[in-house]
């Protein structure tokens, strides 16, 4: 009873700022632009954007996996150092997040441009400048850079809580360090991996700023299309339909990922 009363403020907050807006999005998605009558035309038009959906999901997936590959060793190393050093290192990981997301992306643009810092350096060495920006790789780089802390955070939290006794036990039973990692550390950090992947994938799949600044004129992601519908084209109905589909897509992806952590506990037994 007591817990319910305490949760009441958040419940109100959630209804006003999550449930009601979602209802409005659904209402817009299912009504006509001009007449306001019920229609499925907006949802039907979404099929035109299947290639863009695929591209957004693919780039987000790639960056999530790269974040995992880059972030896991970092989290593992930080968790293995002394508590004092941990605090410093953890803060260093979090530090870029204190700065505006837009500013960080613009800084990358200034680095990678044809007349940017890196290419000017290359040119001053007498070499040919490289096409560093305005391609899919640059977009993935932008996503990885911006969302890497979201991967490291949950991994670190899981790894720091890992019971040393389990590792010692495995070692006592004759496991090599590689086997210890494979049989003990990795399975126990699966929940961290799953929440890390989710926390990177979800914002990456709906991003629009990174692709506009670092992608080519052909790298249009679904976030860009949604933004244009609300900002310039004044077609909130199509925008809402796209958002709705994107949300369903993300929920499906998250559900699939969660299946991994559900089953893993059974195996760990």
């Amino acid at each position: 009873m007591r817990t319910k009363t305490l949760a009441a403020p958040y419940l109100v907050w959630m209804i006003v700022f999550t449930v009601v807006p979602l209802g409005i999005v659904a209402w817009f998605a299912l009504t006509d632009y001009a007449t306001g009558a019920f229609t499925l035309a907006n949802l039907a038009r979404v099929s035109t954007y299947v290639p863009i959906f695929l591209k957004s999901v693919w780039l987000a997936l790639l960056s999530s996996v790269i974040c995992l590959i880059v972030g896991y060793p970092v989290a593992y190393c930080i968790a293995g150092t002394s508590p004092r050093r941990q605090r410093v290192l953890y803060m260093l990981v979090m530090l870029p997040m204190c700065m505006s997301f837009l500013l960080r992306t613009l800084a990358w643009v200034a680095l990678l441009e044809d007349t940017g810092i890196i290419n000017n350096l290359i040119r001053s060495l007498g070499l040919r400048p490289l096409p560093l920006i305005r391609n899919d790789a640059a977009v993935v780089l932008g996503m990885v850079y911006n969302y890497l802390p979201y991967m490291i955070m949950p991994l670190y939290t899981v790894l720091i809580k890992l019971d040393d006794k389990l590792i010692e036990a495995a070692e006592d039973l004759g496991c090599t360090p590689a086997r210890v990692f494979e049989k003990v550390t990795l399975p126990l950090s699966v929940p961290g991996i799953i929440s890390g992947l989710t926390m990177v994938f979800v914002p990456a799949v709906s991003t629009f700023y990174i692709s506009q600044k670092m992608g080519s004129s052909g790298t249009t992601l679904i976030g860009d299309v949604i933004e244009s519908q609300f900002k310039a084209a004044y077609n909130p109905n199509l925008g809402a339909a796209l958002s709705l589909i994107l949300m369903v897509l993300v929920l499906v992806c998250v559900a699939v990922m969660n299946r991994f952590s559900d089953g893993e506990e059974v195996i760990a037994l």
Partner: peptide, 18 residues
């Protein structure tokens, strides 16, 4: 205009990757 902005070369990469 939206068609212009979203038009891209047919790219099988993402579909194959996914």
């Amino acid at each position: 205009w939206l068609e212009v902005k979203t038009e891209g070369d047919v790219d099988y990469g993402p579909a194959v990757g996914i």
